[in-house]
Design a protein around this nucleic acid. Sequence first.
DNA 1: CAACGCAGTCGAACCGGTTCGAGTCGCCGA
DNA 2: TCGGCGACTCGAACCGGTTCGACTGCGTTG
Lengths: 339, 339
Amino acid sequence: MNIGEIAKRAGVSRSTVSYALSGKRPVSEDTRRKIQQVVDELGYRPSASARALANGRTSTIGLVFPPAGNHYTGMQLDFIGSVVEAAAAFDYDVLLSPSGVDSDRSFQRLLGERRVDGAILMEIRLADDRVDHLAELDFPSVAIGRTAHPEGSWWVALDHTALAAACVHHLADLGHRRVAFVNRPEQLLRAGYESAHRGLDGFTKAAAERGLTVRTYCCGDDAASGQGCVERILHDDPDTTALVTLNEAALGGLYRGLAQAGRHVPRDFSVTGVVAGRWAETVTPRLTAADVPAAELGRLAVELLVERLDQPDAPPRHHLLTPPISLRASTGPAGVGTT
Amino acid sequence: MNIGEIAKRAGVSRSTVSYALSGKRPVSEDTRRKIQQVVDELGYRPSASARALANGRTSTIGLVFPPAGNHYTGMQLDFIGSVVEAAAAFDYDVLLSPSGVDSDRSFQRLLGERRVDGAILMEIRLADDRVDHLAELDFPSVAIGRTAHPEGSWWVALDHTALAAACVHHLADLGHRRVAFVNRPEQLLRAGYESAHRGLDGFTKAAAERGLTVRTYCCGDDAASGQGCVERILHDDPDTTALVTLNEAALGGLYRGLAQAGRHVPRDFSVTGVVAGRWAETVTPRLTAADVPAAELGRLAVELLVERLDQPDAPPRHHLLTPPISLRASTGPAGVGTT
DNA sequence: CAACGCAGTCGAACCGGTTCGAGTCGCCGA
DNA sequence: TCGGCGACTCGAACCGGTTCGACTGCGTTG
């Protein structure tokens, strides 16, 4: 069932079928009807490979995300879902590529073998070889997250610096003086993940500004690590009365650790951070947090990418989002002297 | 940088380059070296579209999952991740297709335009037009989940009937007599989702067998719904002492509802169900549950699909998994008379 | 009435690979 | 010395679309 077969049955040439279907040249109404009828009867759809070969566009975008091992978080899931749906709205398919670096086989397949028209990158590092490589090739791509020097490139990102700072100010306003910061795993921090670095930065600077006593921790992406992390925090400084976290996956564990240490949230201890809204709702008490608008970020990334694909010479654009803190139930005034 | 360019620079014909790279015909060591050198210098990689057109294989598998709207659960995330990684191990890419039904544009793109060599279907319904359609076309596919009559087709699935029954027996053994069942949303049940139906079935039958008094509920895939559901349960029968759930996303809300009703888990009330291990660990107390081996299911699905692709005439195979209940901390003996 | 333009159609070339059949060459055994 | 075989290579056809240039009628215009 190829285009030649359709042409034969409709009694026209292959090119006429092509023009009738694409509308790129006028075709008489009679001919078009006849062709359409044959197409409908046979359920003909043009081969994506052939079309891609002929016109150089695959109608597919690549979504590059780091391989698991380090578990996926709910946020990543929301990104993937929203990217796929937004892409579908523009008639693009999404090809998943589990790739941490530039030299990955998976990454090479996407680019070298020209499987995709453009790419969306997740989990950006401050110095990211994938971003550099794509920029060098002038390959259409949009990053979810920004590198240390994002000028002149395309990206959408959360302002983690501002968000972490907002959390600090929120706690300081409530009277907390000794606050801990629970970051993503150390291995990610060392690898230079931007959210971990900028979040830590924003936290540290805002805390200094408000004269808070702080300690910062890295914490594995799972409940057990979260629980262990709280134990370390309370061991290192039992007078700590609040924590800020970027680590969604550890959240349940953080709560458990606090409960086991006999600290009631929010009466004895306040918890806040940067977490996707849906997940902030699942813990009790519900988490006061800067809600990560994952779905919006995914959608914006696709929109930028499509724009870039449609207008190869368009100047770089970006979106930096700073969602407000949603007040829920996990923070409260600092206790009246826990010491 | 196409194969012709390589051929020219290496001073051989295009076909020789092709044979040198694929190894499908002997090529002299000298020639091969020369070609390899040119390839390395130019960083040449054959175009996926051209290759797909020529040999009819895209080296891509489609992963068909239902569009969000109904939120994604952590389990689905784990499936996606494991499928992508397993596919990469076999040198396949994964194309995501948000599709609930057969007639979806997205589904048609995958099949009609031959973008993929095979497909993996998620969120199977007892009567599933996608499965039927693919079977009719004899299109290589593997379902994660099984229809009402899965005989003669390829699938991997959890035995939800047995798992729900196991939960009931576990609770009955602990002395619980009045137990509630918290299912996925009503709209999914009505649509015929197999896990919802088989889980409900297994629960109901096992409960009858053990002479338990039961009530069954549908519950939205979010924390607020879970909380509301517990309220309904305790309103309908305040003597209920345990619940079984298939609804991972509502779990946090179920716990919250119980806490707010003053029921302590597991002292006053036991909770169990079928939930992915990672998520069972995030709640406090940690959930005693049949851990869904999402990663294993994804991997098995890919393995079956690859087998089917490699040997088109292989007889249908399947895997039905029944993971054991992991005893954690959310169930205990029935209270000594809550009435 | 001739020249022109345009709608509609066709054939051929092209995209970048794979694969088949055939041709060349050197070496072997008869 | 000649036929034959195997190793190696090449040209051409093909996969299934898109697109360009050219051709045919027809109605308009000068």
